[in-house]
Simulated assay, not measured.
Amino acid sequence: MALQEGDSDRINIAIDGPAGAGKSTVARMVAGQLGYVYIDTGAMYRAVTLSAQRLAIAFEQESALSELLSGLRIKLEPGPNGQSIFVNGEDVTQEIRSREVTRQVSYFAASGVVRGVLSAMQREMAARKGVVMDGRDIGTHVLPDAELKVFLTASVKERAARRFKELPADQAISLEQLEKEIAERDALDEQRDISPLLKAHDAIELDSSYMTIEEVVASIVKLSRTKLAEAK
């Protein structure tokens, strides 16, 4: 795939995969090593979910969701401690990671209204190239022309163990319950009618079950440099 004039010798990288596979951490580190922009699409869906919950809007209420989205301004801002998420000027970085949001985000992400608006935002962000974007349908739907597509996965047991380690000590949830919730979320993501979780036909699959984050990042950086050389 030839790069278009004005792309400044950069490519777009799409990283898809199920919940807890490490996509966000890996994508952020890959972007840092390449000097690219990291776009956390999951955080964008979480921001919509949080905003809807605050107004008691259910995921089935399409007209109310449409009205909410029309006035929603989502900003992703990199910083020394990672990416901060702002909704209409308010920093919601911590709030969007709550268990309440986590349990509901797949339902809002299945909404055609929500996906339509956020997908358009994400394509606009990637138009100038040099973007690393992670999510569930980046390679298949949002950026089908991305020069490098990676499908990052890991076993349910391993993904649950990783999430469990990240939880605060006073979190009242067992590892077994977390495994169950991740498996349920996988099923929701894979079976939804609109932009389900799928591996793009030209994506490279990486199973991170027995890989360190550094090894995964190094693999993707190497692949990106190969793809960039091929595209020139």
Rank of each mutant, 00 (worst) to 15 (best):
G20P: 04
I57Y: 07
E205A: 05
K227N: 10
Q171G: 13
E100N: 11
E158N: 02
V105L: 05
A203K: 01
A31N: 05
D40A: 09
A126W: 04
F164T: 05
V105H: 07
G35A: 05
D186G: 00
L167V: 01
T93G: 05
V221G: 10
R123A: 08
Y210M: 11
P18C: 05
Q104I: 08
I85N: 07
Q177E: 08
L72K: 02
A229N: 15
F164N: 05
I96Y: 08
K23Q: 04
E214V: 08
Y107F: 15
A52H: 02
S24D: 11
E5V: 13
A52R: 05
L167A: 05
E124G: 08
G35K: 07
G135S: 00
Y107V: 07
F86H: 15
T102S: 07
I57T: 06
K157G: 10
A127Y: 11
I138E: 10
A127S: 12
L178H: 00
E147G: 03
V113F: 11
S84H: 11
L118W: 07
G6F: 06
A52W: 02
V114C: 03
V117E: 14
T41K: 10
D189A: 01
L228T: 03
T93R: 07
E147C: 09
K165P: 06
V87N: 15
E179S: 02
R103P: 14
A229L: 13
L223Q: 11
T153D: 05
S63P: 15
L76F: 04
T41Y: 11
M133D: 04
G116N: 08
R97H: 15
E147H: 06
R54I: 12
L34K: 02
A126M: 04
A187Y: 13
L206T: 01
T25V: 11
I96L: 14
E230W: 13
V150L: 00
R10C: 03
S8G: 11
D170T: 10
A109L: 06
M1E: 06
K227M: 07
K157L: 12
I11K: 06
A110D: 15
E184S: 09
I13S: 03
R162L: 01
E166H: 01
S209N: 02
P168N: 11
E147D: 06
G130K: 10
K222M: 13
E181L: 09
E90K: 09
K222E: 08
E158F: 00
D170R: 14
A58N: 15
Q61R: 05
